[in-house]
Protein backbone atom coordinates (compact mmCIF):
# COMPACT_ATOMS: atom_id res chain seq x y z
CA UNK A 1 0.00 0.00 0.00
CA UNK A 2 2.75 2.34 1.06
CA UNK A 3 4.86 1.46 -1.99
CA UNK A 4 1.98 2.17 -4.36
CA UNK A 5 1.36 5.49 -2.65
CA UNK A 6 5.04 6.37 -3.04
CA UNK A 7 4.94 5.45 -6.72
CA UNK A 8 1.89 7.66 -7.19
CA UNK A 9 3.56 10.57 -5.40
CA UNK A 10 6.67 10.14 -7.51
CA UNK A 11 4.63 10.09 -10.74
CA UNK A 12 2.64 13.16 -9.78
CA UNK A 13 5.83 14.90 -8.74
CA UNK A 14 7.63 14.25 -12.01
CA UNK A 15 4.62 15.18 -14.14
CA UNK A 16 4.29 18.43 -12.21
CA UNK A 17 7.99 19.07 -12.68
CA UNK A 18 7.75 18.51 -16.43
CA UNK A 19 4.80 20.88 -16.53
CA UNK A 20 6.73 23.55 -14.62
CA UNK A 21 9.68 23.08 -16.96
CA UNK A 22 7.47 23.54 -20.04
CA UNK A 23 5.69 26.62 -18.66
CA UNK A 24 9.05 28.00 -17.62
CA UNK A 25 10.41 27.47 -21.14
CA UNK A 26 7.51 29.36 -22.70
CA UNK A 27 7.94 32.23 -20.25
CA UNK A 28 11.64 32.36 -21.00
CA UNK A 29 11.09 32.31 -24.77
CA UNK A 30 8.52 35.10 -24.42
CA UNK A 31 11.06 37.12 -22.44
CA UNK A 32 13.68 36.82 -25.15
CA UNK A 33 12.05 39.75 -26.93
CA UNK A 34 12.65 41.81 -23.79
CA UNK A 35 16.36 40.87 -23.80
CA UNK A 36 16.80 42.46 -27.24
CA UNK A 37 16.25 45.83 -25.53
CA UNK A 38 18.87 45.05 -22.90
CA UNK A 39 21.78 43.90 -25.02
CA UNK A 40 24.23 44.77 -22.24
CA UNK A 41 22.79 42.01 -20.03
CA UNK A 42 23.11 39.53 -22.90
CA UNK A 43 26.71 40.66 -23.51
CA UNK A 44 27.63 39.99 -19.90
CA UNK A 45 26.14 36.49 -20.06
CA UNK A 46 27.78 35.61 -23.39
CA UNK A 47 31.04 36.64 -21.74
CA UNK A 48 30.62 34.38 -18.72
CA UNK A 49 29.02 31.50 -20.65
CA UNK A 50 30.97 31.69 -23.90
CA UNK A 51 34.28 33.50 -23.55
CA UNK A 52 35.19 31.92 -20.23
CA UNK A 53 34.42 28.44 -21.67
CA UNK A 54 36.67 29.09 -24.65
CA UNK A 55 39.93 27.82 -23.15
CA UNK A 56 38.67 24.36 -22.17
CA UNK A 57 36.94 24.00 -25.55
CA UNK A 58 40.04 24.92 -27.53
CA UNK A 59 42.40 22.73 -25.52
CA UNK A 60 40.03 19.74 -25.64
CA UNK A 61 39.43 20.26 -29.35
CA UNK A 62 43.15 20.26 -30.07
CA UNK A 63 43.79 17.09 -28.11
CA UNK A 64 40.74 15.27 -29.47
CA UNK A 65 41.89 16.14 -32.99
CA UNK A 66 45.41 14.93 -32.26
CA UNK A 67 44.12 11.65 -30.83
CA UNK A 68 41.85 11.19 -33.86
CA UNK A 69 44.84 11.80 -36.13
CA UNK A 70 46.96 9.25 -34.29
CA UNK A 71 44.29 6.56 -33.91
CA UNK A 72 42.95 7.11 -37.42
CA UNK A 73 46.43 6.83 -38.90
CA UNK A 74 47.28 3.67 -36.99
CA UNK A 75 44.05 2.01 -38.10
CA UNK A 76 44.05 3.23 -41.69
CA UNK A 77 47.72 2.51 -42.39
CA UNK A 78 47.02 -1.24 -42.06
CA UNK A 79 44.75 -0.97 -45.10
CA UNK A 80 47.05 1.41 -46.97
CA UNK A 81 44.29 3.98 -46.70
CA UNK A 82 46.05 6.70 -44.68
CA UNK A 83 45.14 9.07 -47.52
CA UNK A 84 41.59 9.10 -46.05
CA UNK A 85 42.89 10.44 -42.73
CA UNK A 86 41.72 14.01 -43.38
CA UNK A 87 38.23 12.82 -44.26
CA UNK A 88 38.00 10.58 -41.18
CA UNK A 89 39.13 13.33 -38.82
CA UNK A 90 36.89 16.01 -40.35
CA UNK A 91 33.76 13.86 -40.59
CA UNK A 92 34.13 12.62 -37.03
CA UNK A 93 34.57 16.14 -35.72
CA UNK A 94 31.89 17.95 -37.71
CA UNK A 95 29.23 15.27 -37.43
CA UNK A 96 29.64 13.94 -33.92
CA UNK A 97 32.49 14.88 -31.64
CA UNK A 98 32.34 18.64 -32.24
CA UNK A 99 28.71 19.14 -31.18
CA UNK A 100 28.55 16.35 -28.58
CA UNK A 101 31.82 16.90 -26.72
CA UNK A 102 31.36 20.67 -26.79
CA UNK A 103 27.88 20.27 -25.35
CA UNK A 104 29.13 17.93 -22.60
CA UNK A 105 31.93 20.31 -21.67
CA UNK A 106 29.52 23.22 -21.92
CA UNK A 107 27.09 21.53 -19.53
CA UNK A 108 29.89 20.91 -17.06
CA UNK A 109 31.59 24.27 -17.31
CA UNK A 110 28.78 26.76 -18.04
CA UNK A 111 25.55 24.89 -17.24
CA UNK A 112 26.55 24.05 -13.68
CA UNK A 113 27.58 27.67 -13.08
CA UNK A 114 24.23 28.95 -14.39
CA UNK A 115 22.28 26.61 -12.10
CA UNK A 116 24.38 27.45 -9.05
CA UNK A 117 24.07 31.18 -9.70
CA UNK A 118 20.30 31.21 -10.17
CA UNK A 119 19.76 28.70 -7.37
CA UNK A 120 21.79 30.81 -4.97
CA UNK A 121 19.87 33.91 -6.04
CA UNK A 122 16.71 32.05 -5.13
CA UNK A 123 18.12 30.78 -1.82
CA UNK A 124 19.21 34.28 -0.79
CA UNK A 125 15.79 35.63 -1.88
CA UNK A 126 17.24 37.94 -4.52
CA UNK A 127 14.64 36.73 -7.00
CA UNK A 128 11.84 37.45 -4.50
CA UNK A 129 13.33 40.91 -3.91
CA UNK A 130 13.26 41.59 -7.65
CA UNK A 131 9.61 40.61 -7.80
CA UNK A 132 8.93 42.99 -4.91
CA UNK A 133 10.43 45.79 -7.02
CA UNK A 134 8.22 44.78 -9.98
CA UNK A 135 11.24 43.47 -11.91
CA UNK A 136 10.41 40.17 -13.58
CA UNK A 137 13.29 37.81 -12.68
CA UNK A 138 12.61 35.75 -15.80
CA UNK A 139 13.24 38.82 -17.95
CA UNK A 140 16.14 40.11 -15.98
CA UNK A 141 17.96 36.96 -14.85
CA UNK A 142 16.79 33.88 -16.72
CA UNK A 143 16.24 34.96 -20.33
CA UNK A 144 19.68 36.59 -20.89
CA UNK A 145 21.42 33.47 -19.57
CA UNK A 146 19.28 31.13 -21.64
CA UNK A 147 19.79 33.15 -24.82
CA UNK A 148 23.53 33.44 -24.20
CA UNK A 149 23.75 29.65 -23.97
CA UNK A 150 21.86 29.16 -27.23
CA UNK A 151 24.09 31.68 -29.01
CA UNK A 152 27.40 30.52 -27.56
CA UNK A 153 27.04 26.75 -28.14
CA UNK A 154 27.20 26.65 -31.97
CA UNK A 155 30.12 29.08 -31.98
CA UNK A 156 32.00 26.97 -29.44
CA UNK A 157 31.25 23.77 -31.37
CA UNK A 158 32.54 25.31 -34.59
CA UNK A 159 35.76 26.35 -32.86
CA UNK A 160 36.11 22.88 -31.35
CA UNK A 161 35.82 21.24 -34.78
CA UNK A 162 38.15 23.78 -36.41
CA UNK A 163 40.86 23.35 -33.79
CA UNK A 164 40.37 19.57 -33.91
CA UNK A 165 40.97 19.47 -37.66
CA UNK A 166 44.16 21.44 -37.05
CA UNK A 167 45.17 18.99 -34.30
CA UNK A 168 44.65 16.09 -36.70
CA UNK A 169 46.79 17.95 -39.23
CA UNK A 170 49.56 18.42 -36.65
CA UNK A 171 49.76 14.72 -35.87
CA UNK A 172 48.84 13.23 -39.25
CA UNK A 173 50.83 15.52 -41.53
CA UNK A 174 53.60 17.06 -39.43
CA UNK A 175 54.34 14.03 -37.29
CA UNK A 176 53.35 10.92 -39.26
CA UNK A 177 54.01 12.21 -42.77
CA UNK A 178 50.67 12.07 -44.58
CA UNK A 179 50.84 14.44 -47.56
CA UNK A 180 49.35 17.83 -46.67
CA UNK A 181 47.56 18.10 -50.02
CA UNK A 182 46.08 14.62 -49.67
CA UNK A 183 44.94 15.44 -46.12
CA UNK A 184 43.05 18.54 -47.23
CA UNK A 185 41.79 17.24 -50.58
CA UNK A 186 40.56 13.98 -49.05
CA UNK A 187 38.75 16.06 -46.47
CA UNK A 188 37.21 18.40 -49.03
CA UNK A 189 36.17 15.46 -51.15
CA UNK A 190 34.46 13.65 -48.28
CA UNK A 191 32.86 16.50 -46.31
CA UNK A 192 29.74 18.16 -47.65
CA UNK A 193 28.77 21.68 -46.64
CA UNK A 194 25.07 20.91 -46.12
CA UNK A 195 24.97 17.23 -45.21
CA UNK A 196 27.82 17.35 -42.71
CA UNK A 197 28.65 20.86 -41.56
CA UNK A 198 25.14 22.33 -41.53
CA UNK A 199 23.76 19.27 -39.74
CA UNK A 200 26.56 19.58 -37.19
CA UNK A 201 25.62 23.22 -36.61
CA UNK A 202 21.94 22.27 -36.22
CA UNK A 203 22.96 19.64 -33.66
CA UNK A 204 24.99 22.16 -31.67
CA UNK A 205 22.10 24.66 -31.66
CA UNK A 206 19.72 21.97 -30.37
CA UNK A 207 22.21 20.91 -27.68
CA UNK A 208 22.77 24.54 -26.66
CA UNK A 209 19.01 25.02 -26.35
CA UNK A 210 18.57 21.89 -24.22
CA UNK A 211 21.58 22.49 -21.96
CA UNK A 212 20.64 26.14 -21.36
CA UNK A 213 17.01 25.19 -20.68
CA UNK A 214 17.92 22.48 -18.18
CA UNK A 215 20.51 24.69 -16.47
CA UNK A 216 18.28 27.73 -15.91
CA UNK A 217 15.25 25.61 -14.99
CA UNK A 218 17.13 23.54 -12.42
CA UNK A 219 18.42 26.76 -10.85
CA UNK A 220 15.01 28.41 -10.83
CA UNK A 221 13.29 25.29 -9.52
CA UNK A 222 15.94 24.46 -6.88
CA UNK A 223 14.99 23.96 -3.26
CA UNK A 224 16.20 27.27 -1.73
CA UNK A 225 18.75 25.75 0.65
CA UNK A 226 22.47 25.10 0.26
CA UNK A 227 21.75 21.40 -0.11
CA UNK A 228 19.03 22.09 -2.67
CA UNK A 229 21.37 24.23 -4.78
CA UNK A 230 24.09 21.61 -4.73
CA UNK A 231 21.57 18.93 -5.75
CA UNK A 232 20.23 21.13 -8.54
CA UNK A 233 23.77 21.68 -9.87
CA UNK A 234 24.44 17.95 -9.92
CA UNK A 235 21.10 17.31 -11.64
CA UNK A 236 21.94 19.88 -14.30
CA UNK A 237 25.16 18.14 -15.27
CA UNK A 238 23.68 14.62 -15.16
CA UNK A 239 20.40 15.43 -16.92
CA UNK A 240 22.01 17.66 -19.52
CA UNK A 241 24.65 15.04 -20.36
CA UNK A 242 22.09 12.25 -20.66
CA UNK A 243 19.79 14.43 -22.79
CA UNK A 244 22.68 15.36 -25.08
CA UNK A 245 23.64 11.74 -25.68
CA UNK A 246 20.05 10.57 -26.20
CA UNK A 247 19.21 13.51 -28.46
CA UNK A 248 22.40 12.94 -30.42
CA UNK A 249 21.29 9.43 -31.31
CA UNK A 250 17.84 10.66 -32.37
CA UNK A 251 19.22 13.56 -34.41
CA UNK A 252 21.86 11.35 -36.04
CA UNK A 253 19.30 8.77 -37.09
CA UNK A 254 17.12 11.54 -38.56
CA UNK A 255 19.97 13.37 -40.31
CA UNK A 256 22.24 10.66 -41.69
CA UNK A 257 20.20 7.95 -43.33
Amino acid sequence: MNAIQQLGAWTLGSVARWGRAAIFLFQTLASCAWVVRRIDLLMQQIFSVGVLTLLIILVSGLFVGMVLGLQGYNTLVDFGAETSLGMVVALTLTRELGPVLTALLFAGRAGSALTAEIGLMKATEQLAAMEMMAVDPINRVVAPRFLAGVIAMPLLAAMFAGVGVFGGYLVGVSLLGVDAGVYWSGMQEGVDLYADILNGVIKSVVFGFVVAWIAVFEGYDATPTSEGVSRATTRTVVNASLSILALDFILTSLMFK
Binding site: M43, Q44, I46, F47, G50, V51, L54, A90, T94, A152, P154, L155, L156, A158, M159, A161, G162, V163, V165, W184, S185, M187, Q188, V191, D192, L193, D196, I197, G200, V201
Partner: peptide, 28 residues
Amino acid sequence: ILEFWVGLFVVAGVVALGVLAFKVAGFS
Protein backbone atom coordinates in the same frame (compact mmCIF):
# COMPACT_ATOMS: atom_id res chain seq x y z
CA ILE B 1 36.59 45.36 -22.17
CA LEU B 2 33.67 42.95 -21.75
CA GLU B 3 32.15 43.96 -25.06
CA PHE B 4 35.53 43.61 -26.72
CA TRP B 5 35.89 40.04 -25.51
CA VAL B 6 32.37 39.10 -26.55
CA GLY B 7 33.00 40.64 -29.97
CA LEU B 8 36.24 38.70 -30.28
CA PHE B 9 34.42 35.51 -29.24
CA VAL B 10 31.74 35.97 -31.90
CA VAL B 11 34.36 36.77 -34.56
CA ALA B 12 36.36 33.65 -33.62
CA GLY B 13 33.20 31.53 -33.83
CA VAL B 14 32.27 32.88 -37.24
CA VAL B 15 35.84 32.43 -38.47
CA ALA B 16 35.75 28.81 -37.28
CA LEU B 17 32.50 28.26 -39.18
CA GLY B 18 34.12 29.83 -42.25
CA VAL B 19 37.13 27.54 -41.91
CA LEU B 20 34.80 24.53 -41.69
CA ALA B 21 32.81 25.65 -44.73
CA PHE B 22 35.68 26.63 -47.00
CA LYS B 23 38.75 24.73 -45.88
CA VAL B 24 37.11 21.51 -44.65
CA ALA B 25 34.08 21.17 -46.91
CA GLY B 26 35.70 22.23 -50.14
CA PHE B 27 36.53 25.44 -51.93
CA SER B 28 40.25 25.10 -52.52
